[in-house]
Design a binder for these strands. Structure first.
Length: 257
DNA sequence: ATGGTAGTCTAACTA
């Protein structure tokens, strides 16, 4: 079973790229973030025509998440306890017995800002939710745009991206560790990877051609799934396409019984 | 330190 995640930064703009990518990479599950599409505007027919079922939780202008799957997504969750939040950042579904939790983690803007506080609180509530989900779903994947680079290997310039910088701060990394302490593994690090492997490059100042990026898009897997994970990688190809998203898709493969 | 680009929507916010 192949499971992928991609922050598309507007599904309306990136739909042709998503469909092209799926033709080349016919994954079983594709989790999308930043669809920026309200539910009535979601390109449902195009995705059904591509042979995928889909569930989505969208809003106007910002955020928005979706799960495309070859098999029917079931037991959909878009809202979690103790988080009364209009921002559409969470989408959980069960596909072929695998629980998939798609997250578009809050960016946080700047360390110490109001949005940063919201990010840490959001992560706290989401971790409680994932703990509950993990207790009922031994086959669990938590994936998406985490807006956190797990450690120094995941940033192009650790001096520039340090413990006081958004996406890298100690509190953010500690929150990610707390989530992983529920028994989730960063599948990317289960395998040997090229140095300077990133999943996001700023549109500004030629980030991609200089490979000045961060690895903030993650596929975390429960013990049962990480034990059967064959491969976890980043596909940089679409980042080189014309009018790309600033994120590349990430893919993990699991050998299921 | 700042500014650089992109998307949504046409001013300003978010990333």
């Amino acid at each position: 079973m192949q499971i992928a995640s991609w922050n598309v930064n507007s599904l309306r703009v990136r739909l042709p790229q998503v469909l092209n990518w799926l033709q080349e990479n016919p994954v079983d599950v594709l989790a999308l973030q930043e669809t920026k599409a309200q539910d009535p505007e979601f390109p449902l027919d195009d995705i059904l025509d591509a042979g995928y079922r889909v569930v989505f939780s969208g809003q106007k202008t910002y955020n928005g998440v979706a799960i495309l799957a070859k098999q029917k997504p079931e037991d959909i969750v878009t809202d979690i306890p103790q988080l009364d939040d209009p921002q559409r950042r969470i989408l959980a579904a069960t596909v072929s017995g695998v629980r998939v939790i798609n997250l578009y983690v809050v960016n946080g803007s700047e360390v110490g800002s109001e949005k940063y506080t919201y990010k840490l609180d959001w992560l706290d509530k989401v971790t409680a939710f994932v703990k509950d989900e993990a207790s009922r779903h031994p086959q669990l994947v938590v994936l998406g745009d985490f807006n956190i680079a797990p450690d120094e290997r995941d940033v192009h310039d650790p001096a520039r991206w340090n413990e006081d910088t958004i996406l890298c701060s100690t509190a953010e990394r500690t929150a990610l560790k707390k989530l992983c302490a529920l028994g989730l593994k960063d599948t990317f690090r289960q395998f040997e990877q090229e140095a300077a492997s990133f999943s996001w490059w700023d549109y500004r100042s030629g980030g991609f051609p200089r490979n000045q990026g961060l690895r903030i898009d993650l596929i975390l897997a429960s013990e049962q799934l990480s034990a059967v994970c064959n491969c976890s990688r980043i596909d940089k190809t679409p980042r080189g396409w014309e009018r790309p998203s600033d994120h590349a898709p990430v893919i993990a493969e699991f050998k299921l019984g």
